[in-house]
């Protein structure tokens, strides 16, 4: 896809998207289309996941390329406004004012989402508190919440206003396996007609809840399609890449190949080593039996 020729009002389309930070190329001519359903954005640290999501969320601008988000062009101020009115965004590092309490923070975000009618805003805050099971802590300061609760709060603020596009950057980062399972259940319960894209290091998250996956490596899109489809591409996607990167791609392929029999690598991916969000190291490629 060299340009966004046919605008789809229910998807996110990118063509030759490029973003640089100084001499670092964070996104390198990325082409992709994200349709309705849950799409997983998979890749190691530095792959460009956060950069891509921040561009889709209109928090950052690309240096080159074309982007269409739900049929709107974010280069235009009116287009950005339309996108933001349909957007629920969970950044990778969600900050809170130090003494914010849960309900007050959601109330603030609801106002930013143009829900200015008091009664409607309170009802919306109550709704997302119920969806994320945070009703019991509505009056607590955020700083007293556990990491899992804070991520649920992040998801709650993204759900305010029932957005058509959900952009979640590492929504399950820092969660233990049990919390991650509950988070997956929460995400799986979201309506399927909205466009949801979430970035993750965890292949099992992708397998569990995503209907499609985009694999990013070094700022380039290496694969887009259903998770099982990645398994059928053989090693061609890894050819010509540095050894360490080739191992990463092969490991991803292996994990997607056998979702029903978790390998040691997948089990290790749920352990403490992932707290820093890296693929398990050293990567052990399981030999076929």
């Amino acid at each position: 896809m060299e340009s966004v020729k046919t605008v789809n009002h229910r998807s996110v389309q990118a063509a030759q998207l490029t973003r640089r930070y100084g001499r670092t190329v964070a996104l390198d001519h990325a082409d992709l289309e994200i349709c309705a359903g849950i799409t997983g954005l998979l890749g190691p640290n530095g792959a460009g996941k956060t950069t891509l999501l921040s561009i889709v969320a209109t928090v950052a601008s690309p240096d080159a390329g074309q982007l269409s988000v739900l049929g709107h062009d974010p280069r235009d101020a009116a287009g950005r406004l339309a996108i933001r009115r349909s957007l629920g965004y969970l950044p990778q590092e969600l900050g809170y004012h130090r003494h914010f309490k849960v309900a007050a923070f959601l109330d603030y975000v609801a106002i930013l989402k143009e829900i200015t009618d008091t009664r409607r805003r309170y009802a919306e805050v109550a709704r997302v508190l119920a969806v994320t099971a945070l009703e019991g802590v509505a009056g607590r300061p955020i700083r007293t919440l556990s990491g899992g609760m804070r991520r649920r709060l992040g998801l709650a603020q993204a759900l305010l206003g029932d957005p058509r596009l959900l952009v979640l950057d590492e929504p399950a980062a820092g969660l233990d396996p049990e919390q991650r399972l509950r988070f997956r259940e929460m995400l799986s319960g979201l309506p399927a007609d909205r466009v949801t894209v979430l970035s993750t290091h965890q292949v099992d998250d992708v397998i569990a809840i995503c209907s499609s996956v985009v694999v990013l490596l070094a700022g380039q899109v290496r694969f887009t399609g259903p998770p099982a489809g990645c398994a059928g591409r053989g090693t061609s996607v890894a050819c010509g890449r540095p050894r360490s990167e080739r191992r990463s791609v092969l490991a991803v392929r292996r994990w997607l190949l056998a979702p029903h029999r978790p390998t040691a690598a997948v089990r290790r991916s749920s352990g403490p080593g992932d707290r820093r969000g890296r693929l398990p190291a050293p990567i052990r490629i399981d030999r076929p039996r």
Binding site: F100, A103, Y122
Partner: peptide
């Protein structure tokens, strides 16, 4: 249920005092 949720939210917000406390 919606009214109950709204009342609880209103109560939580009134207990919160304002968006930021201690400053």
């Amino acid at each position: 249920e919606r009214n109950r949720a709204v009342l609880l939210t209103r109560l939580a917000l009134s207990q919160a005092g304002g968006p930021v406390t201690g400053t």
